[in-house]
Structures are given as C-alpha cells and as structure tokens.
Design a protein around this nucleic acid. Structure first.
Length: 342
DNA sequence: AAACCGGGGCT
DNA sequence: AGCCCAGGTTT
C-alpha cells in the first residue's frame, strides 16, 4: 500500500472539497438541524439507501416519532410500519432497541461520546462518526461508499475497497485531510461530492474541485476505480404461502427475527393436510433481492364461513386481519402487492 | 476477515 | 442482468 502521508497535497485537497461543499451543498431537510436524534435517524435510513428513495420515509418517521421518548414508547410493529418498503428491517428494530438504550442507559439524552454512540444498537463506525462530527464537532472521518470511491480515484488506489484493510487505510488518510474544526461539513462534503460529481458511473469530472489532483482522472483511468472484487452470491429460493380468507378477512402471522423480512407479517406458510386439497395454486410471484431470487407460490384456500375462518385461526395460531386494515401492518413487498390486487 | 442482509433505481 | 446506494451484525 502506498503511503500518502508523504503527499504534500492532501490538506489542500481537503480544503478544496470543503470549499466546493460551501458552494454546492445539497439542500436536504436534515441539513437544517444538528439535533442528534434527527441526524441519527437519517443516517440509519440512508444506510445503503438512496436519498430520493428514503426521503419520504425520513419525513414520515420524524413526524410520527419526533424524539427518543416518543420512539421508545411506541410499539415495534408501528416502527416497522414506518419502515415498510425500505428493506433491511433490522435497522428499524435496532433503532427501536437503541431508543430504549438511550432511555435506560443515558437518561433519555442522546450520548455525545463517540464510544457511547458506537455502543448503540445498529450504529457502527460510520454512523457513530457521522453523528459525532455533524452534531458534536468531533474530528472523526465517516468512511462510507462515497469516501472509498472519491479517495480511491484521487490516489488511483488499486486495492480492494471491500477488504477490511481499506477502512483503516482511508481512515488514516482522512484524518490527515479533514480541515480543522470542520469534520461534520467535510464528511457531508464527501457524501455530496461522491453522489453528485464523483459518481460510480459517468462521473462529472469537469465539475470536480480536485480534478487537477486526481490521479485516476489525469491518467484517464477513472473507470477503473474503485476496485471491488467481492462478488454477490445469489441463491434461488422457493417460498410457499397459503392465502386463507373469507370475504374481506384473511389469516396472517408475524415472522421471526431470523432469515429475511424480520418481524414482518406474512400469510401462513403451511396448513393442515386436510385443507390442502381445497387449495389451488393461484399465483407464482418472482421477487429479486440482492442475495436471493425468490419464487413465491401463493396458494389460495377459500373457506365457506366466517366461523370456519375463526376456527382455522384459533387452531393454528394465526391472526385475522381485514383487507381494509392491512395498511396497518408491514408486509413484504410481494405480499403487499398481492393484497393490493385482491 | 468474510458472509450475510431488502429494495429500488440505473444502465 | 449487474451494479450501486449516507453500512452493521454475525460468524
């Protein structure tokens, strides 16, 4: 690995990026506050999630849960409901757990120490650094995908950014680069530069404040960086569901917190043998996740009376929900689509 | 250190 | 069809 500490320009680069940010910062709702609660929520929502995709969720979430206490007092099912469609549902459950940690371990006040923030569920080094720098002025770099991409291009680093060494490497580099007393703005500058200019594809190098110092650009090799060798394995999987309904009501059950779709609601995955002969395979839905290609068989069991539905639910531990109330539960996307199409 | 995890948007 | 995204947790 190269040693950039001998590069006399890295402080200059940090200042160039910060100056660019002063003139080109995106106007985002959470840029108007340094309230750690709001910054925390937005950082979690925007983990692995595009700004445009998560913006409405952020607005809805902080409107319903404006502070730690409100969040801690809510039921986890309602927190999940506000997460519907975002994916990585562990994030919602962890936010809820962390709100309890803040109430119990920090007297309901969001902690200011980096180590305390890192201790909270769902907060790793990136998020702890982001909150620390933005809300509390700590001189800590928040290393995210944008950071890797921008710096790997500037220095034409050809080592794998998904390797565990990359974090330490860029953390050390960033510490030399952050303008003093401006870590929060610098970290956000890297996010904006990475998403608006130094984009994964078709970067706008003509608008880049560090174009002259970017080795990848100067050597015409922008498209070769960052180097990422990790390949995503995609597994095919078949799921069975039985839609058991009568008139406007049907059966649901809450998932466990293992596998996918943690704590979301779904249809029965199995039914007693004597009902299977009355089920028809109504629909096959294909659903792509990042790591799994799902084939979902939705079988339908039509019952002949309300009392039959009630007995079915009681005997097998299912809950009954009315189609009109299904919006109040959080279903996986393909099941939500099925319900909407009823 | 490496594997795993949802969904949407983009090319 | 593959890649990416304001990463964290588990093994």
């Amino acid at each position: 690995m190269k040693n950039h500490k001998q590069n006399p320009h890295f402080i200059l680069i940090g200042n160039q990026i910060l100056k660019w940010y002063g003139q080109n910062a995106r106007e985002l709702p959470f840029r108007n506050t340094k309230n750690p609660y709001n910054i925390w929520i937005c950082e979690i929502i925007f983990q692995q999630t595009r700004i445009a995709q998560g913006m409405q969720h952020y607005e809805n979430f902080v409107a319903r849960f404006p502070d730690v206490k409100t969040l801690a007092n809510a039921h986890s099912d309602e927190v999940l409901l506000y997460w519907k469609g975002l994916g990585y549902y562990s994030r919602a459950l962890n936010i809820h757990k962390a709100s309890h940690q803040i109430m119990n371990d920090f007297g309901g006040v969001f902690p200011e120490k980096y180590e305390d923030i890192l201790y909270l569920k769902g907060i790793g080094k990136y998020t702890a650094a982001a909150v620390s720098s933005i809300c509390f002025g700590k001189q800590i770099p928040a290393i995210d995908g944008n950071f890797y991409r921008v710096l790997s291009r500037i220095y034409a680093d050809d080592f794998d950014i998904s390797s565990s060494q990359a974090y330490k490497y860029y953390e050390n580099l960033a510490l030399e680069m952050i303008p003093s007393n401006a870590a929060g703005d610098f970290n956000q500058a890297m996010m904006d530069l990475g998403s608006e200019v130094c984009k994964p594809r078709n970067p706008l190098c003509s608008e880049c404040p560090v174009q002259e110092n970017c080795i990848a650009f100067q050597t015409g090799k922008i498209s070769e960086f960052p180097v990422k060798t990790k390949k995503v394995k995609v597994e095919s999987l078949e799921l069975q569901y039985y839609f058991v309904g009568f008139q406007e009501e049907f059966l649901i059950k809450q998932r466990g917190d293992d596998f996918i779709w943690k704590k979301l609601f779904e249809f029965p995955t199995d039914i007693p043998d004597d009902f299977r002969e009355f089920s028809i395979n109504e629909k096959i839905v294909k659903h792509k996740l990042t790591h799994k290609n799902l084939v979902i068989n939705i079988n339908r069991v039509v019952l002949s009376s309300k009392s039959q539905l009630d007995k079915f639910a009681f005997d097998n531990g299912f809950s009954i929900i009315n189609k009109d109330n299904s919006q109040q539960k959080s279903f996986p996307k393909p099941l939500e689509n099925y319900i909407d199409g009823l």
